[in-house]
Nucleic acid binder design. Structure first.
Lengths: 205, 205
DNA sequence: ATCATAAAACGACGAATGTTGGGAATCGCG
DNA sequence: CGCGATTCCCAACATTCGTCGTTTTATGAT
């Protein structure tokens, strides 16, 4: 979890982990995750195999960190923040999950058995953190704690997005995100999240 | 998914897979999943190692099948069916997820890194199937398809239950299930699931 | 009871795993 | 500049993995 190539980290370590992230990312474009060995990843990253285990316990951990990092970058690149309207930020998050999942290579392939389960927890953690951050500015008057609401909503979002991507002849990601929004909004309305809906006209980019 | 020791299957293979399930179950009581090798499982099951690969591609698949099977058995043992009131059946499902997760050995241990991600998909699949079955008796008048609703709700349920189990000084599973219920019920109310709420006084034991 | 068939056992294989220890390169800081 | 600490490389180790071909056993229909 704290293995992300964060800013407050020795530049050498960050370089190495970025190399690993990039190598895994490019390798996943052509080969299935299950067929990738640590040796493949490290040679593609021009690193020694033992160095890998200095940073990650196994290739699954690297996958989770890379997914979380890239998804987080995707959201921040879109300027997703809770400074503006909450509903719009939530919509952006849902849309981000949909687009991220849709951008994965061959998610429905049978050889990606081990890919999905590890992606899930990573992405959900990112979503949960952002929703929890957004919930802090609202009084938790509901029967559930903010953590409980954030967790439940983030899991619901991921599940909905996943259902959308595996839908044949799926509509656009905007429409899919809209459907998911109508499903999860009732949950958050228990905490008056939709209050002052589109108050600030702050447009990201 | 279809690897469950189902009834319509040769008794010999069912026996073998039950042996594997039982062996893994007992081994998980003392050791962490990551430290278990296929050799450990097969010797505990008094089977040859190669036989394992005749039934499951890897130990993760066995774990998923075992979790799904046991969780399904837990629900059916409690008589969870949609013949009675839908709300009560849903409550029983949520309660089942909470109790199942609470019954897992040392879920919060750091060495169980690989355990959770594979449990999730298995249990969620079971929950989703039951909810989808329950949704068939209602008109899908909402903006979302029954599959979309079932998926979203099942993921939300698992997330909520997981949040409950990792809560320190957590309340009883009934109270935790109640909280989760209040969160997910608004979703399903879009499809009038709560109609005829507690109509039949069917009590499961 | 017989026999064809399905399934489990067995041994062996190349490859990958996760870990270890030591040495070399690089960085941060005085 | 130089020194300590961190990080990476390297080789090697025992273990496990996933697969294969073959042999042996058990099942169930005739």
């Amino acid at each position: 979890m704290a293995k992300t190539p964060c800013k407050g980290m020795a530049p050498r370590v960050r370089r190495t982990r970025q190399l690993l992230h990039q190598a895994l990312g490019t390798l996943l474009e052509t080969r299935a995750f299950e067929t990738l060995s640590v040796q493949h990843i490290t040679t593609a990253a021009t690193l020694n195999r033992a160095t890998f285990y200095d940073h990650y316990p196994d290739k699954f951990a690297l996958l989770e960190c890379m997914a979380a990092s890239r998804f987080h970058d995707l959201l921040t690149a879109r300027g997703v923040k809770f400074d503006g309207g909450c509903a719009s930020a939530l919509k952006a998050i849902v849309l981000g999950v949909c687009d991220y999942l849709a951008g994965l290579p061959a998610l429905e392939c049978a050889r990606q058995r081990q890919l999905e389960p590890h992606l899930e927890s990573a992405i959900i953690a990112v979503v949960r953190a952002m929703i929890l951050q957004g919930l802090e500015r609202h009084a938790s008057n509901g029967a559930a704690s903010p953590e409980m609401m954030a967790t439940t909503v983030s899991w619901a979002i991921y599940g909905g997005a996943k259902e959308w991507v595996k839908t044949v002849d799926r509509p656009s990601s905007e429409e899919g995100a809209d459907v998911v929004m109508t499903l999860i909004t009732p949950i958050l309305s228990l905490s008056r999240l939709t209050r002052r809906d589109t108050h600030h006209p702050v447009e990201t980019t």
